[in-house]
């Protein structure tokens, strides 16, 4: 049984997804949360290309879906990071605890 098969590629994609989710829960800075989301997206893209190579024969739909996915990832990064910049300009702080109050002070 060769090591390079669909099951192992999917397991690798799942592990990447879990690592990214762990980062989303663990990180406090909004930028690093976005970075963990990129790790999760990386795992999903790996699963797409693996399915394409092992199961879909001559179709290249997985590659197309990958291109769609990085388009979405680019837009998500641009919008998310500009939101982070606005939050930083308004509050001088981009930790999760500060943002979860959304303008209210700690005492409120």
């Amino acid at each position: 049984m060769p090591l390079f098969n669909l099951a192992n590629c999917l397991a690798l994609a799942l592990l990447l997804l879990l690592i990214g989710a762990f980062g989303v829960f663990r990180r406090r800075s909004l930028i690093l949360i976005l970075l963990s989301v990129e790790v999760m997206l990386n795992g999903v893209n790996l699963a797409l290309v693996a399915f394409n190579y092992f199961r879909w024969g001559d179709s290249e739909s997985g590659h197309y879906l990958y291109m769609l996915s990085i388009g979405v990832a680019g837009v998500e990064a641009a919008v998310g990071l500009s939101m982070v910049l606005v939050l930083f300009r308004n509050y001088r702080d981009i930790t999760r605890e500060r943002i979860s109050h959304l303008g209210e002070t700690e005492e409120a």
Partner: peptide
């Protein structure tokens, strides 16, 4: 997934 045979390209 382990039992699935890969489709040749």
């Amino acid at each position: 997934a382990k039992t699935l045979a890969p489709v040749a390209v």
